[in-house]
Design a protein around this nucleic acid. Structure first.
Length: 476
RNA sequence: GCGCCCUUCGUCUAUCGGUUAGGACUCAAGAUUUUCAAUCUUGCAAGAGGGGUUCGACUCCCCUAGGGCGCGCCA
């Protein structure tokens, strides 16, 4: 019986930098398609560049993947560990006459390229060792192994995103498979690994589209099955400038530190280049159900923080209060210096969360907006609160304090008493509520003030209010 | 220089030859309101340019312009 082959996807970052936003989206698309199709999602670290690959970068990439919630199947594969296998494939190609030894030195090649540049010719290896007799080879000289690529005809990449992309073979030169030190190049390694890993769909950045044609030639030389390709347009910065891989400033963990939720990131990244009609808010479950390769856009997108903020605010509002409080606690503990919340403070934070989370676009804003709950005692006033607490406002505070004190300390009862007080004094509610807010929170905006009073408790609130209450000296 | 790709409101996008070109973000105005938000309502705002094909093009083809990517013994 024929078994329907489940798709095998992979994300293959090179650990020469951190997981940037473009890579995160590539990983997300691969992950979504794998989960959507019931296939497999593998992670391969392309660490064949021994000079630039670092353990820190590997750790950062894995951490970034975990934070984004992109779990991969099976063990993480390290490409460098497979070098021997790559070499064998090159040897096989050599033995079959599909590859050859090239003794050109690097200086020689640079000279060749300089000349081509000067003459306005395309920059390509000229095949100088392609058909030379091996006997002409200098003894004991170092050599690289190059693929004997087709020189005529064309190579066409069938791409689910870009369509049919045709390359004239004369524009594709004989790429290096094995370096002079015997190590495999990326071009060889990817092809061999993807084949060995059984990868059926290669979804990666647009910058690899040209490589696809070259890799196809290796695949053809080996007689291996051709995977489905999908090349995603790159993400640009808000200003339209490129947002390329080596920009560590936009590593995913930076977004975490800025207070973005993984689910918001996933939703945002998903809509950058992929659409499902007019849907904007798409849960991960929904995304898995809907995701396909057909609806991926072909044009590059700019990164827009405003929209990310909007989505993040939405997901913050939708998140459980307790979970959010835990996130804030974690964020505070990562601060310099670390801030540790008492049990009381944490209980207050959870209680105030419904009011707090409606007003925050990021976890950072959430943490800052709740700071009046973390410690006891009179508040330091921010500039606006300072301005609001005029002598008149402080006098009102002095008069309202006993009113607050005399009675039940529930939000509803407090509001009732303050309304009555304001009415009697001929004041608008805001004229009384705002000074209270300023004294209690140190700010001019906060969640509903009577709720906050109830959460903080009578003793604490009155102490804060009285710290700013001033009774004008009586003229009499 | 050569090759490849891209081009709808400021931004992300829908449209798969026939629509008053829709939605979302942003911005503005209004409603609501103890502040700020949230929410609701309304508004501003687009097919790069030029040729074709067609009864009819945002949609198909060509050219131009602009942008991106690639052209390593990097990945």
């Amino acid at each position: 019986m024929t078994e329907i082959k489940k798709p095998v996807l992979r994300f293959a970052p090179s650990p020469t930098g951190y997981l940037h936003i473009g890579g995160a989206r590539t990983a997300l698309f691969n992950w979504l398609y794998a989960r959507h199709s019931g296939g497999t999602f593998l992670l391969r670290i392309e660490d064949t560049d021994r000079q630039r690959s670092t353990p820190e970068a590997i750790a950062a990439i894995l951490e970034g993947m975990r934070w984004l919630g992109l779990d991969w199947d099976g063990q993480t594969i390290y490409q460098f560990a497979r070098a021997e296998r790559h070499r064998q494939v090159a040897e096989q190609l050599l033995a079959e006459g599909k590859a050859y030894r090239c003794y050109a030195t690097q200086a020689e090649l640079e000279e060749m390229r300089a000349k081509q540049r000067a003459e306005g010719k395309p920059l390509r290896y000229d095949g100088r060792w392609r058909d030379r007799d091996p006997s002409e080879a200098p003894a004991d000289a170092p050599f690289v192994v190059r693929l004997k690529a087709a020189q005529t005809g064309e190579t066409v990449v069938h791409d689910v995103v870009q369509g049919e992309v045709t390359f004239a073979n004369e524009n594709l030169d004989d790429m290096v498979l094995l370096r002079s030190d015997g190590t495999p190049t990326y071009m060889l390694a990817v092809v061999v690994d993807d084949f060995d890993m059984g990868v059926t769909h290669i979804i990666r950045g647009d910058d690899h589209l040209n490589n696809a044609a070259r890799q196809l030639q290796i695949i053809q030389a080996m007689g291996w099955p051709v995977p489905v390709y999908g090349h995603l347009p790159l993400i640009h910065g808000p200003d339209g400038a490129k947002l390329s891989k080596r920009h560590g400033a936009l590593a995913v963990d930076v977004y975490r530190d800025m207070g973005y939720l993984p689910e918001a990131m996933r939703n945002y990244l998903l809509r950058l280049g992929w659409s499902h009609g007019n849907e904007e808010i798409i849960s991960t479950e929904q995304a898995i159900a809907w995701f396909d390769l057909e609806n991926i856009g072909r044009s590059p997108a700019r990164f827009d923080f405003k929209k990310l903020d909007n989505l993040n605010a939405h997901y913050i509002r939708a998140t459980d209060d307790k979970v959010l409080a835990d996130e804030v606690v974690a964020l505070l503990s990562r601060r310099q210096p670390p801030q540790v919340l008492s049990e009381t403070a944490k209980a207050r934070l959870i209680a105030a969360m419904p009011g707090l989370k409606e007003r925050a676009k990021t976890l950072v804003e959430l943490a800052d907006a709740g700071d009046f709950l973390y410690t006891d005692g009179p508040r330091a006033l921010d500039a606006q609160a300072e301005k609001l607490l005029t002598p008149e406002a402080r006098a009102i505070l002095a008069r309202v304090a006993p009113v607050l004190e005399a009675g039940d300390w529930s939000a509803a009862a407090l509001e009732e008493r303050v309304r009555t007080f304001a009415e009697k004094e001929g004041l608008k509610l805001g004229q009384v509520a705002q000074p209270i807010r300023a004294a209690v929170t140190g700010k001019t905006s906060s969640p509903p003030i009577f709720d906050m009073l109830a959460i903080l408790g009578q003793t604490e609130c009155l102490s804060r209010i009285r710290a700013y209450a001033v009774t004008p000296s009586a003229p009499a």
